[in-house]
Design a protein around this nucleic acid. Sequence first.
DNA 1: CACTTGACCTGTCCGC
DNA 2: TGCGGACAGGTCAAGT
Length: 289
Amino acid sequence: MPELPEVETVKRGLGLLIVGRVIAGVEHDWPKSFPNSQTDVDEFLLGASITEIRRRAKVLLIDLSSSYTLVIHLKMTGQLVYRGTEVFGAGHPNDSLVGDLPDRSTRVTLTFQDGSRLFFNDQRKFGWIKLYPTIEVPNIDFMKRVGPEPFEDTLSHTDFVQRMRRRSGTTVKAALLDQTVIAGIGNIYADEGLWGARIHPVRRVRDVSDKELKLLLDEVRYVLSLSIEKGGSTDKNYVNAEGKRGSYIDFARVFRREGQSCPRHPDVMIEKLRVAGRGTHVCPVCQVE
DNA sequence: CACTTGACCTGTCCGC
DNA sequence: TGCGGACAGGTCAAGT
């Protein structure tokens, strides 16, 4: 679930909450959630302060004063929730989606010198936090292969068309989800962008015109920026760094709206199908196969 | 090589 | 009510 807008929202929240704090302790119970050795922890994590929070694609980067970086992928159900040291009530805001922490899906807990904590919760255990030398981050396989950021101003419409054409034999939805074509788009914003551009997700890229693909980039940029403005999409698991939900789902036109009417066609119902192995939402009138 | 499917996991929901 | 199976969906490995 966390796609570009959700990770960007967490990034902005953590920027306000944890930059400058000094890491005093780390606990982790699931090896795949935090695979580094105790030696790495002792040498490069404990005692380091947080200098900057960055994002690349759906990956969050927490830079440390030790010249190491915590590289974090939330995958489907990951959450990063900060809790301060205030002692009122249960110690968390009333509108938080998350209760007392740690809880049974807490995989990693970072404790800061001032007693505040950052919890990495991940129900399905697909996500991870890995400590890398900052200088090595661009050499991680994923970082070398991932495509341009959607809002990079050097990404022209023509560039986008060319990158999509590299996957001309597959469906336009599979190409949009391919992180080496363009970074940060997942199932929600693929469906929303394709509806915006009136392109059926099952069409082969080779059968989609340049004009349609250029419109698709505009529509993808529109839904991503709207979602960032709304704090992302909370369907089930996603919360921001304060444990609060995002509201893009209230503005979604097709995602999770099967059986409801298309915003362009009050008499037509949104349908759900499977494309590229994922639940896919379309208006059968706007989007023709 | 290009593309598709399965695995990684847990929790929820649906039908029998 | 219990139980098996489908589904949720990001990414990589394995299969066609």
